[in-house]
Design a binder for these strands. Structure first.
Length: 281
DNA sequence: CGGAGTGTTAGTCG
DNA sequence: CCGACTAACACTCC
């Protein structure tokens, strides 16, 4: 579930709570989800947080703690002092009941407790002990949309190589980092490109449009704190509101905001894909 | 009740 | 190398 805007929103929220604070204890309730020896990071302080694609990176005094939330992972921080602010969306499951049956890793800091919850258990936490290891971990990922190397020339050349659909291409993390199912569909709507089109069949004008739409969609989503559907909450427990401004995602059968045509939902290589058959050619 | 569907991605197989 | 498919898991929806 969490794509770039959700992970980035969580990162920003957690940075405020965690930077400068020390890990007192790590409890691993589902060993499969934690890679490395949890005792290694006890006593270390959080220096800074960053993000690469959908991976959250917490830099500690000596090591790095990485988290991937995959489909249903959550990170919830419960501060020691003061009420947990739920952002106007009270939800018992994310407050008083922690840890609950889907809390698999619990990290105690000097100022509160971080819970890693994951219903489907696809996510993970991982300790890396050097910058080299970290670079190896993210080596296969394509550029972030904010990087200078993410240029129109790169974008066009990569699309030209691919005979798969444009939808599948956008989901390929080795091509561009951070796009998932929601923002693939939303970017394609913005660019008026049908998700079934082959990547290498897009016209030059369409490629240019899509290239411009990706940052636009990501930035809008970041302003809204990401998308909340089912499990996702911001780091403070509140909901992201992007879905309120989404054009196609989860809008099957509803009128297109541009032309009024019903939004369709189809399967593209196993992933649900939402689009307006009238606007997206 | 049974089966399909779910925001991800690494791995396998042809 | 490329592309299609599957598994990892637990729950909701129809």
């Amino acid at each position: 579930m969490p794509e770039l805007p959700e992970v980035e929103t969580i990162r920003r929220g957690l940075a405020k709570s965690l930077v400068g604070h020390k890990i007192l204890a790590v409890k691993v309730l589902a060993p499969k989800l934690f890679i490395g020896n949890p005792q290694l990071i006890v006593g270390q302080e959080v220096l800074e947080t960053s993000r690469r694609a959908k991976i959250l990176i917490i830099k500690l005094s000596e090591y790095f703690l990485l988290t991937h939330l995959k489909m249903t992972g959550q990170l919830i921080f419960r501060p020691k002092h003061g009420e947990l602010v739920i952002g106007g969306h009270p939800d018992k499951v994310y407050d008083s009941q922690l840890p609950h049956k889907h809390s698999h890793i619990v990290i105690e800091f000097d100022n509160g407790t971080l819970f890693f919850n994951d219903l489907r258990k696809f996510g993970w936490m991982k300790i890396l002990t050097s910058l080299d290891e970290l670079q190896g971990e993210v080596a296969h990922l394509g550029p972030e949309y904010t990087w200078p190397e993410f240029t129109i020339d790169y974008f066009q050349a990569e699309l030209a190589k691919r005979r798969i659909t444009i939808k599948q291409t956008l989901l390929d993390q080795t091509f561009i980092a951070g796009i998932g199912n929601i923002y693939a569909d939303e970017s394609l709507f913005s660019a008026k490109v049908n998700p079934r089109r082959k990547a290498n069949d897009l016209t030059k004008a369409e490629v240019k449009k899509l290239f411009a739409c990706i940052p636009k969609v990501f930035n809008l989503a970041l302003q809204h704190g990401g998308t909340s559907s089912r499990d996702y909450r911001q780091a403070d427990g509140s909901m992201g509101t992007y879905l309120q401004v989404a054009n196609v995602y989860k809008r099957e059968g509803l009128p297109c905001q541009v032309c009024g045509n019903p939004i369709e939902r189809i399967k593209i290589s196993g992933r649900s894909s939402h689009f307006c058959p009238n606007c997206q050619k």
